[in-house]
Design a binder for these strands. Structure first.
Length: 110
DNA sequence: GGTCTGACTAAAT
DNA sequence: GATTTAGCCAGAC
């Protein structure tokens, strides 16, 4: 099952700079369906090499910011990438949302 | 080895 | 429309 975590890490690493995605989107892309919790659990085990701060819940809320450490570390990381965060919620989330099952499959976008 | 929990999500109430 | 319930699966106790 480590492969599952590895896949999660890889997808998260594929998230472009200044973009965000959701646990459910990753789970769906991996074919795990509704098991979005496992993605979050994978993040818990994830190393600092994984930009987990770009992963939020379906509402664009920084639900896991507390796991990064004290204060608003996650929010600062996002703002550092040009992502506006307001009250633990990503501003224009739908614009910044990056869906792997969409962005990675559509190759002939023309 | 059964039970609880969790960085989620969608549907029902 | 906010709160609750249920489904999800892997790890901790």
């Amino acid at each position: 099952m480590d492969d599952f975590f590895e896949m999660v890490y890889e997808v998260v690493r594929l998230v472009p700079y200044g973009r965000v995605t959701s646990y459910g989107a990753i789970a769906r892309y991996l074919g795990t369906g509704q098991s979005a919790r496992m993605v979050g659990w994978a993040m818990n085990k994830a190393s600092n090499s994984v930009p987990a701060h770009r992963v939020v819940n379906s509402a664009g809320l920084l639900t896991g910011k507390h796991h990064f450490g004290p204060g608003s570390v996650m929010q600062e990381l996002l703002e550092n990438e040009g992502i506006r965060v307001e009250d633990d919620q990503i501003v224009e989330f739908e614009k910044l949302f990056w869906d792997p099952s969409r962005e990675l499959e559509i190759d002939d976008f023309d």
